[in-house]
Design a protein around this nucleic acid. Structure first.
Lengths: 196, 196
DNA sequence: CCTACCGATCGGTAGG
DNA sequence: CCTACCGATCGGTAGG
């Protein structure tokens, strides 16, 4: 009798995906059941299947939404006229902001992608590999232009991506650190370490 | 009829734990079944229970082994007579080395701890919180001694721990980066960014 | 160490 | 949107 509410946040399917992201984050994809998901939406489990095809489809939607978000952003930044170091800063800030604004979905894409089925698993890994390649290229350009130290680009990408990803451990409102301070200090920490 | 081999690596139980870490890493704790674990050991699933109490006991053993490893190391470094920055370097190097030598177990402790049952979940989080506190204190001392910039210690800890943790994405033997280069560059990247 | 088996839970379908 | 239900798989036990 209850109904899934298609709020201003989007269609019923989008509401289900959003709730799924929350649940997959807190319990992990495998441990989360469709019955639990249905309960948070106030319906019985079989009713979900009027809106979605399968549990794995939910994971796919989350992972590719996040993947495409980052890909389109790095494309935009790459084609802008800024210096390499400014581009890097923009990317780091985008990571931090997206992570904090879109926490559940980014968390799930980072942690649960390995439960994607083929061919989605391969597609997702390709998207991620391309993203890392773009970032590596950007750092290599910075080195050539002497904006950056003569570092190993691969290690630098690993360090930067890992550090921003670690924001999932950030306790909001705790430790009296505002998002602005967090962002500025992390950018400074990561860029001062490689700047020429 | 097959038997679990207690190799030079330890007792049968320790062999099971090691294989469990491998399996939990590649499939995640929830998705990995005891039947699969038994298969990698060449026995039937019920035979495992002659050596262990439960699946969750395996996760506990892995998480606390790793937790205690890091805790005892930071205690040792804290009490050594080096400068704050040298201590920080030692900790970062320990993280990198332990991550690479003990990959499966560190990975599982980092990713699957949330599936611990109480009271183990609370105990594990306490261990981790204490570890982060020790590291934060160390950075605060470095700031007081003017070895480090006037940064926010909490953000610095987050950045450092996240970056070293990201080594789980490092492709060994790939990209022509030796472990030594990786270690040196990451240490430099993370310390140059906060050094005075 | 094994075979045989249990109760619980899972994702998903049939049918209305 | 629901009730009723299916086959598969799970962690674990009994008993030898």
């Amino acid at each position: 009798m209850a109904k899934i509410i298609s709020s201003e946040k989007g269609t019923k399917k989008e509401v289900i995906i959003q709730k799924a992201a929350q649940l997959f984050k807190s319990k992990s994809y495998t441990a989360a059941s469709m019955r639990e998901l249905a309960e948070t939406l106030g319906v019985e489990a079989p009713s979900l299947y009027n809106h979605i095809g399968s549990k794995s489809e939910l994971l796919q939607a989350i992972c590719f939404k996040v993947g495409n978000q980052f890909t389109s952003q790095i494309d935009k930044i790459e084609n802008s006229p800024a210096s390499a170091i400014k581009k890097l800063e923009a990317i780091i800030r985008f990571h931090i902001q997206t992570m904090l604004e879109n926490f559940d979905e980014v968390y799930v894409a980072n942690h649960e992608w390995k439960h994607l089925q083929e061919p989605f698993l391969s597609d997702f890994l390709t998207i991620r590999r391309n993203y890392e390649k773009s970032l590596t290229d950007l750092i290599e350009i910075g080195i050539q232009k002497k904006e950056l130290k003569n570092i190993n680009p691969y290690v630098a990408v690993l360090t930067i991506l890992s550090a921003v990803r670690g924001l999932e451990f950030w306790q909001r409102n705790k430790k009296n650190v505002s998002q602005q301070v967090l962002e500025d200090e992390m950018v400074s920490h990561l860029l001062t370490g490689i700047e020429n």
